[in-house]
């Protein structure tokens, strides 16, 4: 019995060293050497300033920016230090109320729009940090952004199409538009 206990303790110590120290150090060393950008959070540096991560969404509410999906993180939306979904059940009245309020907001920002509101633009993502919206949600906002920026709709639409990511390897996932990248590109359009 004592022998088994000794073996158990020795085993957990050795495997802690192998799988808890050596293994993560090898992965870290390799990742930092070969994929340093990805391994450190895919940060976007603009003029020496970190403006975000291309994988982490940010909250936008001005009409001149494309809006991201609602986020359920607290205390602020898109709090990347505390990811969270809403966990609202499908029949929870709060869910329907949130969706309605969001639709009201979208309509108020663009009273002229007659388009149907894509579901991803009015529902909270699982992580609360979803960097993407569907191409439909981007198209829904093109007219509003163009008006707020006093730019031609086609110009905005071109930019959306250019930044739309298709299915990975042509098959995997869903087509999507990265909101932060799109808004940064918008800000870089030179003023007329």
């Amino acid at each position: 019995m004592m022998r088994i206990l000794r073996q158990a303790v020795a085993c957990i110590v050795i495997f802690t060293v192998i799988t808890g120290v050596i293994y993560p150090l090898i992965v870290t060393g390799f990742a930092q050497l070969v994929f340093p950008h990805q391994a450190n959070g895919s940060l976007i540096i603009d003029n020496g300033k970190t403006v975000g991560s291309s994988l982490i969404g940010q909250s936008f509410s001005s009409p001149k920016y494309f809006w991201a999906r609602p986020s359920a993180t607290s205390p602020t939306p898109y709090n990347a230090a505390n990811s969270s979904g809403s966990n609202l059940g499908p029949l929870n009245p709060a869910l329907a109320e949130n969706v309605k309020a969001r639709i009201t907001q979208l309509k108020a920002a663009d009273a002229a729009s007659k388009q149907a509101v894509p579901v991803d633009l009015v529902t909270a993502s699982g992580s609360g940090l979803d960097p993407d919206i569907s191409p439909a949600s981007a198209e829904y906002q093109v007219a509003r952004v163009a008006k707020a920026r006093n730019l031609d709709e086609t110009k905005i639409r071109e930019l959306v199409v250019k930044l739309t990511k298709n299915r990975q390897l042509g098959i995997l996932g869903e087509p999507r538009v990265n909101v932060l990248e799109l808004n940064l590109a918008l800000d870089n359009i030179p003023n007329k």
């Binding site: 809403s86 966990n87 969706v99 509101v117 529902t123 569907s134 087509p175 999507r176």
Partner: peptide
């Protein structure tokens, strides 16, 4: 509530509450 759930080439549609756009 007013959301468009219809799947199309530009959106996966459906019940997107708690789901990520890249996975649909």
């Amino acid at each position: 509530a007013g959301a468009d759930l219809q799947p199309s080439v530009t959106q996966s549609g459906g019940n997107m509450e708690g789901k990520e756009v890249r996975f649909g």
